[in-house]
Amino acid sequence: MMDDDPAKGHDDRTTFDQRLAAARNRAGLDKPKPVAEPQADGPNPFSLAMRLGAEMVASLVVAVAIGYGLDRLFHSSPWFMIGFVPIGAAAGLRNVIRVMGPAKKD
């Protein structure tokens, strides 16, 4: 059946490991994966434009919703909505300027 000689089992194991390592090297399985270099030019322009557009729209939608809610609450249509639209536009522009401004160096 099987030999109970521990020295022979250890020797077979090391030769198997050596043959396995050699086969993996030949197949290219043990090569380190290339690390993607960070983009030197900054983020993708399309994703940046989408983000800036979404920031502007979101701030305006929130401002209009708050103005509409206050107009409904106080029955003062459309004065709160008219007042909150410039506030929402200013908030959106502030976010755009913050994103497009100089990057912080840590």
Rank of each mutant, 00 (worst) to 15 (best):
Pro38Trp: 05
Gln39Ile: 07
Gln39Asp: 15
Gln39Thr: 14
Gln39Ser: 15
Ala40Met: 11
Asp41Arg: 15
Gly42Lys: 09
Gly42Ile: 04
Gly42His: 07
Gly42Glu: 00
Pro43Glu: 08
Pro43Ser: 08
Pro43Tyr: 03
Pro43Val: 03
Asn44Asp: 15
Asn44Phe: 04
Pro45Arg: 05
Pro45Trp: 00
Pro45Glu: 00
Pro45Tyr: 01
Phe46Met: 10
Phe46Val: 08
Ser47Tyr: 12
Leu48Arg: 12
Leu48Trp: 04
Leu48Asn: 07
Ala49Leu: 11
Ala49Met: 09
Arg51Trp: 06
Arg51Val: 04
Arg51Ile: 02
Leu52Asn: 06
Gly53Gln: 05
Gly53Trp: 00
Gly53Tyr: 05
Gly53Lys: 07
Ala54Cys: 05
Ala54Glu: 00
Ala54Thr: 09
Glu55Phe: 10
Glu55Gln: 14
Glu55Tyr: 12
Glu55Cys: 06
Met56Cys: 11
Met56Gln: 10
Met56Ser: 09
Met56Asp: 04
Val57Glu: 03
Val57Arg: 15
Val57Gln: 11
Ala58Arg: 14
Ala58Met: 14
Ala58His: 10
Ala58Phe: 11
Ala58Cys: 11
Ser59Met: 13
Ser59Val: 04
Leu60Tyr: 00
Leu60Gly: 08
Leu60Glu: 03
Val61Thr: 13
Val61Ser: 14
Val62Gln: 02
Ala63Gln: 02
Ala63Leu: 02
Ala63Tyr: 01
Ala63Asn: 03
Val64Gly: 10
Val64Thr: 09
Val64His: 02
Val64Pro: 08
Ala65Thr: 10
Ile66Gly: 04
Ile66Trp: 01
Ile66Gln: 05
Gly67Ser: 07
Gly67Phe: 04
Gly67Asn: 02
Tyr68Ala: 15
Tyr68Gly: 14
Tyr68His: 13
Tyr68Pro: 05
Leu70His: 01
Leu70Val: 04
Leu70Ala: 07
Asp71Gly: 05
Arg72Cys: 11
Arg72Tyr: 10
Leu73Val: 01
Leu73Tyr: 12
Leu73Ser: 13
Leu73Gln: 14
Phe74Asp: 09
His75Tyr: 13
Ser76Val: 08
Ser77Leu: 15
Pro78Asp: 00
Pro78Val: 05
Trp79Val: 11
Phe80Tyr: 12
Phe80Asp: 00
Phe80Arg: 12
Met81His: 02
Met81Cys: 10
Met81Glu: 05
Ile82Met: 14
Gly83Trp: 01
Gly83Ala: 12
Phe84Ile: 02
Val85Gly: 01
Val85Asp: 00
Val85Cys: 08
Val85Leu: 12
Val85Pro: 06
Pro86His: 02
Pro86Ile: 02
Pro86Trp: 02
Ile87Gln: 00
Ile87Asp: 01
Gly88Asn: 00
Gly88Pro: 01
Gly88Ala: 04
Ala89Arg: 10
Ala89Gln: 04
Ala89Trp: 09
Ala90Asn: 07
Ala91Met: 10
Ala91Ile: 09
Ala91Phe: 08
Gly92Trp: 00
Gly92Cys: 03
Leu93Trp: 12
Leu93Phe: 13
Arg94Thr: 10
Arg94Lys: 13
Arg94Met: 13
Asn95Ala: 15
Asn95Thr: 07
Val96Gln: 06
Val96Ser: 03
Val96Leu: 11
Val96Ala: 08
